[in-house]
Write a protein that binds this DNA or RNA. Sequence first.
DNA 1: ATCTGTCAGTCGTCCTACAACTTCCGCGGA
DNA 2: TCCGCGGAAGTTGTAGGACGACTGACAGAT
Lengths: 242, 242
Amino acid sequence: MSTSLGARTSLARRLAEDVRSRIMSGEYAPGERLPSEAELVRHYEVSRVTVRTALRTLEAQGLVDVRHGSGSFVSDFGAGIRAGLQELRSISDTIREMGHEPRMERHARQRRPATPGEAAKLGIAAGEDVLAVERMILADERAVAYSYDVVPLAGFPDELVEQLGAGSLFGTLDAAGLMPARALAEVHAISDETIGWGPQKPVPGLYVLLDQVHFSRRGSAVAHSRTYFVEGRFQFVVLRTN
Amino acid sequence: MSTSLGARTSLARRLAEDVRSRIMSGEYAPGERLPSEAELVRHYEVSRVTVRTALRTLEAQGLVDVRHGSGSFVSDFGAGIRAGLQELRSISDTIREMGHEPRMERHARQRRPATPGEAAKLGIAAGEDVLAVERMILADERAVAYSYDVVPLAGFPDELVEQLGAGSLFGTLDAAGLMPARALAEVHAISDETIGWGPQKPVPGLYVLLDQVHFSRRGSAVAHSRTYFVEGRFQFVVLRTN
DNA sequence: ATCTGTCAGTCGTCCTACAACTTCCGCGGA
DNA sequence: TCCGCGGAAGTTGTAGGACGACTGACAGAT
């Protein structure tokens, strides 16, 4: 972690990410004491300010517990956080981190004007073009969710539009410079027989619906997605802190 | 915010809490720029380190967006975060913050040995005494949730046991020095006609179940609670960040 | 055995200084 | 007039040093 040159993100952020990955990988076990701030300063060759900034971030995320006069400790919730709902990551990555093999199967793909409801959620004018994609999400070839994603196309690079709905939604958005940094998700319980499709369509149709609006770092809405998770096939965990 | 003496919590934490409440109250509107670090230093009469520590915390919680060279901005999600699932607070407080009047109605209260499942979740020996409380949660006299709470009684002050199930669970736990600092919550969609009771029992019985284990700051489990929120009567929002 | 004071280790806060980045505004040229 | 460039001012990021406050452990006294 040298003095850096063309780093596009802050030193403290990278340090936090590094420590975070070490915690996730088990290098630092839950409950274990992290190296002291002074040791981290020597190891990473950064100032104590930077170390403390990173630790603060991890503490606010619930990953570590900083105790005055005692040290910093890895929170006991590592395993739970790994699939934590408050962490914004693609469903594929989450499935992979849980030890399963993810796969997407596209069911429909359509370019059309935004409905009034979608326009309101995305903060665009009604009738603006969007791309709507319906997909089934599988883990180890088992259907775990059905997703309905909507991406506004205004200002979206033409050559990337065709990629939308092909591979990872997050990946394509990232390539377009519209990587989601935050998402506001509503949680609902839904019982509806018209949601899913295919041979694995669940009976009865009981789902946890995640109705999300994704925002870029600058605050503009980049996608609206409704994902219906088949109840019982996907574990939702939220770490709540104060 | 003077130099303080008997403060049981850190200066930076209190500062973050103060700024947070100002954001919530609308004193700083979503998207608006916060005072610069230098101005906050002057206003609160603390060092810049303390100000930055507080801002880091708020940033990690998703409430503010700190931009290098530009300033700190209130995130656009203030309204959504207010009822955010990732914020650990009592249901009563959440209902109040949403502008409704909360009320609890006790349905059952029983001291009994822990079931094996409860013992496992709470990390106690099977058969240890717990207090189980069933309650209905109302907002403006409308049933919004049914809760099943379990508190292990080992090491719990006798004089406070009778308070359990009377008023706020969080309040009693706080009085016992066991204030929950974190909770790990599982989210499920549940369709079950045997859950609720009373004249407002919903038909059909569709609920969002929050299956939570509450932990004290030191990591010991202080309560297990299953809360069945009537679908549609309570808005669940999660702010997801990366 | 219990209590107490000491001490080393660690985090909390403060100060000062400078680098890096953003924004804005004015100047000059087309 | 319009556009583009540069620089100044303001703001956040990082560094280094200093000291206070808290914790945990240990030795000594009771």
